[in-house]
Simulated assay, not measured.
Amino acid sequence: MKWLSVFFCLCFISPLLGQDSTTTTKNWSITGYIKALQNIQFDPINHSNNSNQLIHNRLRFKWRPKENLQFSLELRNRVFTGNSLHLIPNYASRLRNTSENLNLQVAWINEPDVIFHTNVERFYVDWKEKKWTFRLGRQRINWGINTLWNPNDLFNTYNFLDVDYEERPGSDAIKTQYAISDFSHVEMVYSRSFDRKDIFALKYFINQWNYDFQFIAGSYRGLGTWGLGWAGNIKDAGFKGEAQYFSDGQINISSGLDYMFPKGWYLNAGFLYNSEGLNESVLVWPQVNLNFSAKNLMPAKYNFLFMFSKEISPLLSVSMSTVYSPRLNLFIAIPSIRYSLSSQIDLDIIVQNFFLNNTHIGDMGMLRGRWSF
């Protein structure tokens, strides 16, 4: 019965807090959402199914005592139930974000059938003074430019298979930015993760010839690293790309084109090269490393992306994403449907299909409802 009490609190108390705060004072704000995710995993090789449920709540608190000063706090509350709690040992211990240094998480309930977990996802202070901006604390540092694969994103690698984590993980970091002009700035970031492996990097951003360029240099977990990113247009198509080199000889390069057609059609095609990725087929699925990091954006050396989406109506949209790694012979297809029940309530159906060496190795179907407040 404990988890029922938790669910009640997340569903009813959180939005009430948000409504009270936003109406009483202008320098305070509380927003967030509640999501319910049901997923079923199909294993056609072992002829087994796995069903899990997740209640996901996020609360965002912001306080601006002065025009140039802001404090931010975001909590991620999750209730897990389902078969995976029995199949994966020490499930709760695996929920911590590896990019964080301080342990600001707690498992309020950690039982064989239910886990209630809270993590402080954002906790930082912003201060602005003329051309300077300072941010200290747990924050999202987004240096990525490309749509899916971001070699320049040294601090918070995006896992495109994690469909329920659009905010992406945060880092315990110090960030300083100096605005050289309206079209250029310099940004410096230092962060430390729980394993005490530091990341320090400097980024120079400039707009030239109607293109955005960024140049990166720094140290990534003991390795020197240098990077380049760009974003612009080739006629009416968007053209983006990133490259990142590490002193151990590894290089990641990604590039992509995207185009918005009349009548709501959107297309995106991309490419990723990982010099240390697999360049041949493997015998079993566990040899494919999907633990993504700045050095492992995909397990294969060559990877291609094709994605399209279509707005059927203002309330209904569909999309299809496919990823193919030819030498590894890995194929992933992700179709999805989104329907907006109201301005605050969305319903998503998402399917992930996995194929290796022309063998169907698994599927995951997800049904998600979201209520924003």
Rank of each mutant, 00 (worst) to 15 (best):
A173M: 04
A237D: 09
N150T: 10
L356W: 02
N152E: 09
N101K: 10
S184C: 13
A300M: 08
A36S: 15
I45S: 07
W132K: 08
L272R: 01
V6E: 03
P326R: 14
T22I: 07
N357E: 12
S5E: 13
W28Q: 06
P335D: 11
I145H: 09
K310S: 05
E129T: 08
P286Y: 06
A179Q: 15
Y324P: 01
E111P: 08
N27G: 13
M188T: 12
E187I: 11
I332T: 01
I206L: 14
G218E: 05
I349C: 07
N233Y: 14
R140S: 00
P326K: 04
K310Q: 14
R168K: 14
W127I: 00
F183G: 07
Y165C: 08
N159H: 12
S93L: 10
I332G: 04
D348N: 15
T81S: 06
I34R: 00
G365A: 08
Y178F: 11
N110M: 10
F292Q: 10
G369Q: 09
L283F: 15
G277H: 00
N142W: 03
V189I: 06
C9T: 11
S275T: 05
N329E: 14
S309Y: 03
N296M: 02
I30H: 00
T225F: 06
P89V: 00
K26M: 07
L316D: 13
Q38G: 07
R58A: 06
I40Y: 09
I174R: 00
R138W: 04
H56G: 03
F306Y: 09
I337D: 05
W209N: 14
I349W: 01
G144N: 01
A269G: 09
F308T: 08
N156V: 03
N27E: 11
